[in-house]
Amino acid sequence: MVNKIKVKNLSCYYNKQCVLNSLNINILQHEILSIIGPANSGKTTFLRTLNRMNDLNVNYSRKGEIYLDNNNIFFMNMESLRKRIGMLFEMPIPLPMSIYDNIVYAPKLLNIVSNKSDQDAMVEKVLKNVSLWNEVKDRLNSSAMKISGGQQQRLCIARILAINPEVILFDEPCSGLDPISTAKVEESMIRLKQKYTIVLVTNNVKQASRVSDKTAFFLMGKLIEINETGKLFISPQKKQTGDYITGRFG
């Protein structure tokens, strides 16, 4: 197995206050790594550092390195980094345009597709990939704001697939969804593993155990434990991990 992402000694700060403390993690290609931990454990900060979304925040600063295929991401052009590392947010955020335009918006600007027939083919392909095609194929030109929350979240995944990334980050993608929609999103995730490397931040311990290959447990900005999901859930090495996954705190 190949290392896709290597994180070396990463520390992050908001207003000089440390929220992530010298973190070291390797993420393998084509695996799903889920990150669990209570609130304020630095999970989301870690995720938003991976595609440098946090660079926009003026109070944020960091130390350490992250390598994507042995290239330091902090020296990379921000747009090409984000094209390679896609991100799905906690709330579904469709852009205020039609379903069709939501998908072709970025590929058009990034010169991935040019002519109309390529665009049509791409829209169909990515929507089928997230099992949304049958539900929306008759109203591709209606506003993406009008479909249900679960559909919106799957549209957002489709939108990421359209730019053909290598890594996809999921930031608690099901926290606002009902169980059926959640199941559909999880189903897409497992299917996506064949082609992509996935990092999933979740508050839902069961979800981590259902979908991921590896699980990391964060607490107060520190990586407490990382292991294959089966092993971590059956025999955690650290007491805090055991306490958290059995629901004694957090």
Partner: peptide, 16 residues
């Protein structure tokens, strides 16, 4: 603000 984040996260530049 979320619209900006969504667009940026797709690799679209700031000006676009």
């Amino acid at each position: 603000y979320l619209f900006r984040e969504a667009s940026l996260s797709l690799g679209v530049s700031r000006w676009d």
